[in-house]
Amino acid sequence: MHVHFLDPYRPGSSPIHQLDARVKLILTLAYILTAALTPIGAWPVYILLLAWAVTIEILSELGVGFVLRRAALALPFVLAALPVIFTAPGAALIHLPIGPWMLTITLPGVERFISIALKSWISVQMAIVLAATTSFPDLLTAMRAIKVPRLLVAIFGLMWRYLFVLVDEALRLMRARLSRSGESDRPDLKAGGALIWRAKVAGGMAGSLFLRAIERSDRIYMAMVARGYDGEVRAAPLPRLSRRDWLTLWLCLGLLLALLTSAALF
C-alpha cells in the first residue's frame, strides 16, 4: 500500500551512518571525480578504488551484497560503451566475421570499455552507500553547506515531503486502470484498445496527477501562511563539524589525491 520501502535509506549506527552528511557528500563526489580522472587501463588504481568502496560498504554495515545487488541495476547502460571495443584504433585482438562485414576488436578498445565499466560500477556503489546511510533531511543540510541556493533546497525539501504521497497516488491510478482492463468472453473481440488511445489514457492519468498536485499545493500554501510563511525561506544555521569529521574529510581527500597521483604512473 505504502511505497516507503522505495526509499533506499537504511537507518543504522555504523561509523558511515554517523559521519556528517556534508563530509559524506563531498567525499562521494571526490571519489567519483577521482574515478573519472583515473586514466584508461590504470588497473592498480582501479583495484585500490574498488577495495576502498568495499571497505566503506563493510564499515557501513549495509552488507556488500546489498550494495552490489543495487549496483547491478545501474549496469545496463554499460552497453552504450560497447561499440568502442570495435572502434578504438589500435592493435587488433580478434576478427569477427559477421555476414559480409568484418568486425575487429582492438586491444585499446577492450581496455577502454573495461575501464569505463569499472568507473561506472565503483561510482554507483559509492552513490548507493551515500543514499543508504544518509537521511534526506541530512542531505538537504549537506546541499546547503555546498552552497545550493536556499530556494532550490526548499523545493527539494517539499518535493521529498510529497514524493511518496504522489507516487502512491500514481500507483492507485494505475491500479484502478488495471482493474478495469478486462477481456470480454466474446472471441471476436481483441482487448487493449488502440495504441494512441492507450497513450492518451496514460496522459489523462498524468494530467489528473498534475492537476491534483497543483490544487494540493494551494492548500499547502495556505497551511504554510497560516503558520507564518511570508515567502521567505528560512533555515537554521548549519551545525559545526566535529574534529573527527574534519579529520576524516582531509584524510580521505588526501588518500584520493595520492591515488590519483599514482595513477599517472601506469
Binding site: 478495469r180 473481440l189 482487448a191
Partner: peptide, 9 residues
C-alpha cells in the same frame, strides 16, 4: 467508456 473500449467493443 474505458472498460468497454479496452475490451474491444
Amino acid at each position: 467508456a474505458f472498460g468497454p473500449i479496452y475490451q474491444g467493443l
